[in-house]
Design a protein around this nucleic acid. Structure first.
Lengths: 142, 142
DNA sequence: AATAGATGTAATAACATATATTACAATCGA
DNA sequence: TCGATTGTAATATATGTTATTACATCTATT
């Protein structure tokens, strides 16, 4: 089990939008060429990022740009833009209420797993787009 | 996206095995009645827990028991028993190597996400079966 | 040794989710 | 108006999860 490709793809998109800002128009086809997915996937993802207030997309003429500084966009913003807000683990729906374990498992295990998800989100919140962009630029010898 | 029901189900199974130890034989049918899944799911999960060295299952006569103290079994043990060891997030296979973002995204984002998974596992490792069993017993007024 | 109750495992079905792709109406600058 | 683009629906394909049936195998007990 692993999370879908959506967070990495959305992050890739945002990094490209910023990296190529001013240089070329970041259309869905252009972005699809870098990420290597179908342009429609890019457009859907851009739609989610737009709904989350992270980007503006120019209808008709095309191209996208960030609505905030890369320093103000975190991986948690991206995560929430493209993933449902749900428990980290799926729980069995109807454990037996006549069993002492069955009637307590969800509360006992669930609260602990919720904390772990919370911590995961805290860590995502500490990684900014700017940090990632700097890391890319450093790898490029910049 | 969320992890499958397997960790919660496997944990439920282990808790029942320990809770009912000495009281009754914890067969796949008995456990299925508490968890509320098909007995074959229980047998498959017990097979994974057995392969991980966490339980012994009596062939023929039936019933399962823990091979270690509940204090020595952590949620990380259970997690590893029932989930593949893979990245937390799925990465797009072939980003464009001609793009500065495409040729660096996996390394830059991947290393950071790996750390997050590592921390998640560290937290799972801190939760023991004993802690969960105590919490269940406390909820029962015990 | 025969039996009854269990396990281990394969095969299949039903369902959900993810990704790719086609199609096309709507949008907007030139 | 034209051409490039977006937004979105519809569909297809693949994969993963859970439920279920079936059955060979195992073992304590009679």
């Amino acid at each position: 089990m692993q999370f879908s490709v959506r967070l990495p793809v959305a992050t890739h998109i945002l990094l490209c939008i910023e990296k190529f800002h001013g240089e070329c128009k970041t259309t869905s086809t252009f972005l699809a060429g870098s990420v290597n997915v179908h342009p429609v996937i890019i457009r859907k993802t851009l739609g989610q990022l737009r709904a989350a207030g992270l980007v503006e997309v120019a209808a008709g003429v095309g191209g996208a740009k960030l609505t905030k500084s890369p320093n103000d966009i975190t991986l948690l913003d991206v995560f929430r833009a493209v993933e449902e807000d749900e428990d980290l683990f799926h729980f069995q729906e109807n454990p037996n209420p006549k069993c002492p374990v069955g009637r307590n498992i969800h509360q006992v295990l669930g609260t602990r797993l919720e904390k772990i998800k919370q911590h995961m989100e805290d860590e995502l919140a500490r990684i900014t787009l700017e940090e990632l962009l700097n890391a890319v630029n450093e790898n490029e010898g910049g």
